[in-house]
Nucleic acid binder design. Structure first.
Length: 481
RNA sequence: GGGUCGGUAGCUCAAUCGGUAGAGCAGUGGCCUUUUAAGCCAUUGGUUCCGGGUUCGAGUCCCGGCCGGCCUACCA
């Protein structure tokens, strides 16, 4: 054994342990504390603390002859252990020296403080509970190869601290979202992911086949239409946090499966949703991150506090194109103008789509501070109520933060006749599928309601200052090898 | 999908004009009973992503493929 093949070296160590009657994959180890709890057991002034029993993966190993320091990583973080030959005995110390970085061990002993002040367990006993047969990535630089970070996320989580913290924060954010919704008297429901009609949004679905019924299903692209059926059924405050699937491109901001929050509240409307959405994000940010301001990589600080800006879609467009009569111009002149503005627009698009390209390509990425964009053209969404004072727009907002659309919300259309008409009149590249079963439900009566959908991944992107949606999704979609 | 940049030891990275593939960490063998990326001595380890081509000679140049990053397109 020359040490060149690290897997073989570890396998040989494992074989030696087995031959001596030791099981390198123990059934269990009794933990009394996790790492942070244990560290907290030793008071500021105390030199010696109570005995604790912890367990974790060895992520640092400093052997100094007849004693050693090592660091164990568990769910809370790291704790140091100090192991002396004269305290655990010659035999145990001999096998202890053969441990590898990456192995899981349990350690029991009293807490003490080292010369440099670090709270440490002075081991009376240790036991290997799981042998790791492969080495960890390098301890100082961690793992930086993107491919490996995504394909072997567990390694990223073991060695990259900021990654581990980001996913803990994501979990905390989702927990705080639920806490907020519950505090507003919403109940959480689960609706089908396999659907025969993919409604509620304009997107290409993933298709699959159900053998038992010998029929095709789609993976859901939105939660909307089933949650509205819940309103019809009398559950008048419902929400769902769930995965949706869209058969579209991959990018820094898009993963084919992503997580949405959708909430529907009867006897509310898009104004009510505005308050709900702002309060939700403020409370989640405050509780999950302890702050309402977050600095972007470019230095700009996103300020979530107080009331948020409202801006009418038309005003933003007119401001961006510098032309008051934009909406009166024929499509051909709009197209010429977009060319001057330096954006590429497909001339085959409908008139309202040309305008929306202006919004998406020129305006959206400039909306860094939270902004509710209101009075959106009715062609852009068939599921909302028409604005009474302006029949060309709908009662909706699109919340933009960090230059991205985070959450749209509507005063939900509940007139089955107008709803059917809106589905049928859709034009343009992207349209919603007509769901007759949903229209049947509407005919039974859906109370007036506000509804809101939020892209959780995008919320997590700016709350955790992530560069890429893949950094917020544990196992992002990748090309199979 | 298009453009562009990249893939070298388990990990992080070098390798000048095309001229013997190296370092740190990890590993292996020693020394070391309060270390903090511990230290000291010695040392193993390579299908340079894969397949072709050019050349006396290819990690390096050319062609094709695989995988990925970034930009872009569709979208949230």
């Amino acid at each position: 054994m020359d040490g060149s093949d690290q897997v073989a070296v570890r396998q040989a160590k494992l074989d030696v342990l087995r031959e001596s009657g030791k099981d390198p994959f123990q059934a269990n180890w009794e933990q009394t504390h996790a790492s942070k709890q244990a560290v907290g057991m030793l008071g500021e002034e105390e030199e010696l603390g109570p005995e604790v029993s912890v367990a974790g993966r060895i992520v640092a190993f400093r052997l100094m002859g007849k004693a050693a320091f090592l660091k164990l990583l568990d769910r809370e973080g790291k704790i140091q252990a100090y192991v002396r030959r004269d305290e655990i005995g010659d035999d145990d110390y001999a096998t202890f020296k053969k441990l590898d970085l990456g192995d899981f061990i349990g350690v029991r002993g009293p807490l003490f403080r080292t010369k440099t002040g670090e709270v440490t367990i002075r081991a009376k006993e240790y036991r290997l509970v799981t042998k790791a047969l492969r080495p960890l990535p390098e301890k100082w630089h961690g793992l930086s190869d993107n491919d490996q970070i995504y394909r072997q996320r567990y390694l990223d989580l073991v060695v990259n601290d900021e990654s581990r913290q980001r996913f803990q924060t994501r979990s905390r954010i989702i927990r705080e979202i639920r806490e907020f919704m519950w505090s507003r008297d919403f109940i959480e429901v689960e609706t089908p992911m396999l659907q025969s009609v993919s409604g509620g949004a304009a997107a290409r679905p993933f298709r699959t086949h159900f053998n038992a019924l010998d029929c095709d299903f789609n993976m859901r692209i939105a939660l909307e239409l089933h949650l509205k059926r819940m309103l019809v059924g009398g559950f008048d405050r419902v929400f769902e946090v769930g995965r949706v699937f869209r058969n579209e491109g991959l990018s820094r901001r898009h993963n084919p499966e992503f997580t949405m929050l959708e909430a529907y509240q009867a006897y509310s409307d898009y104004r009510g949703m505005m308050e709900l959405t702002r309060s939700l994000i403020q409370q989640v940010s405050q509780r999950a991150l302890g702050a309402l301001q977050m600095e972007r990589p470019d230095g700009e600080v996103i300020d979530l506090s107080g009331e948020w800006r409202e801006a009418k879609y038309k005003d933003l467009i007119i401001d961006a194109v510098g032309q008051d009569d934009w909406f009166e111009l024929p499509k051909s002149e709009k197209l010429q103008k977009t060319k001057k503005l330096g954006i590429e627009v497909d001339p085959e698009l409908e008139d309202f789509e040309v305008t929306n390209d202006v919004f998406e390509k020129i305006i959206e990425h400039t909306l860094i501070q939270p902004t509710f964009v209101t009075h959106i053209p009715k062609e852009l969404c068939p599921l909302a109520k028409i604005t009474q004072s302006d029949p060309s727009t709908i009662d909706v907002f699109e919340l933009c933060i960090n230059g991205q659309e985070i959450a749209p919300a509507y005063s939900e259309q509940n007139d089955p006749g107008l709803q059917r008409e809106a589905f049928l009149k859709q034009v343009g590249e992207e349209t919603h599928e007509l769901d007759d079963d949903f229209l049947l439900a509407l005919e039974h009566g859906m109370p007036p309601a506000g509804g809101m959908g939020m892209g959780i991944d995008r919320l997590v992107i700016f709350l955790t200052k992530a560069a890429n949606i893949r950094d917020t999704i544990l196992f992002p979609t990748l090309r199979p090898l």
